[in-house]
Design a protein around this nucleic acid. Sequence first.
DNA 1: AGCACGATTAACT
DNA 2: GTTAATCGTGCTC
Length: 200
Amino acid sequence: MAAPRLPRSFFARDTVEVARDLLGKRIVREYDGLRISGIILETEAYRGEEDLACHARAGRTPRTEIMYGPPGRAYIYFVYGMHWLLNVVTEEEGFPGAVLIRAIHPEEGLDFISSRRKGHSQTQWTNGPAKICQALAIDGDLNGVDVCGADLQIWLENGVEIEPELIQAGPRVGLNSVLDPWKSIAWRFVVNYQSLKAFL
DNA sequence: AGCACGATTAACT
DNA sequence: GTTAATCGTGCTC
């Protein structure tokens, strides 16, 4: 019996809450009949047009349109000329928001991940947002897929319980030219190493 | 261990 | 034309 997927209602909430609640959840990628999965250890929230770090800061564009759409869809985009990054759209339809998945702890499909991250040690397999996409074979072809519906490509399940006191919040990464308060607002969430050891 | 930089494309100004 | 929600390498301390 397969574990139930996180429902759309999980994502139809405030982006910052969703980002925090995604820690400890399991992200599952099905590829070529193979199940690849990991436990989410790090996320970031991007929320609203006033958030100067959010792509929706400039309003609706072809790229950001998906962030305004229904929650529970994948927002996958390309940066720095070579990297794909995976987000899940949040908030009620009409309000832009998404959670960036920044790090996971691999659990299933280790051979697959290893082959896609050849030449790197296991700790470097999925400890960054572009590394996750490389490891799980996620690219722009999957932009817009529904992670709550019947699509068998990416979805989320309940994983492990993370004690609230083991969650660290801090400023989001890579926002070099973003102004405060958005540059330093604590919308990045990381599972503390202490709790990491509980299931490593 | 930590910092600086180049890679390489597309969206947006 | 500029910038970018990053990564890997190569250099220095």
